[in-house]
C-alpha cells in the first residue's frame, strides 16, 4: 500500500484565531473550537499548498522549525492522528 498522504481541511471550513500560546480554530462542520498548540497549527499550514506524506512533512517542518529530526516523525504522526480524529486533517 502506498504511504498515506495527509490533506488539511479546506480553508473555508475553518476560522482561525492565533492567540499567544495556542491557536483557536473553529471547525465549521462540527461547530467545535479546537485549541491547538505547536506544532499542530504549523502542520496544518504546511499542508495547505498540497497534501504531503509523513516523510515529506517531516522534511518540510525540520527545515523551517527547530525540530529534532529523530523524534519528529513520531511526534508528527501522533499530532496527525489527533488532527485526523477531529476532522482537521484527512488521510488520503
Amino acid at each position: 500500500m502506498a504511504e498515506p498522504r495527509y490533506r488539511t481541511v479546506a480553508a473555508d471550513l475553518i476560522l482561525v484565531e492565533p492567540l499567544d500560546i495556542f491557536t483557536a480554530v473553529f471547525h465549521r462542520p462540527s461547530g467545535i473550537t479546537h485549541l491547538l498548540s505547536e506544532p499542530a497549527p504549523q502542520i496544518m499550514e504546511a499542508l495547505v499548498p498540497a497534501p504531503l506524506t509523513l516523510a515529506a512533512l517531516v522534511q518540510f517542518l525540520t527545515q523551517r522549525f527547530d525540530l529534532d529530526a529523530a523524534d519528529a516523525a513520531t511526534t508528527l504522526q501522533a499530532r496527525l492522528d489527533e488532527l485526523e480524529a477531529v476532522g482537521l486533517v484527512d488521510r488520503l
Partner: peptide
Amino acid sequence: PPAESFVRLTQASTNYVALGE
C-alpha cells in the same frame, strides 16, 4: 494574555458551544 482570557471567557459562558459559529 490572549490565550488565558479566551479560555476564561469561554469557561464563563453558558452558551458559547450552543451558539456555534
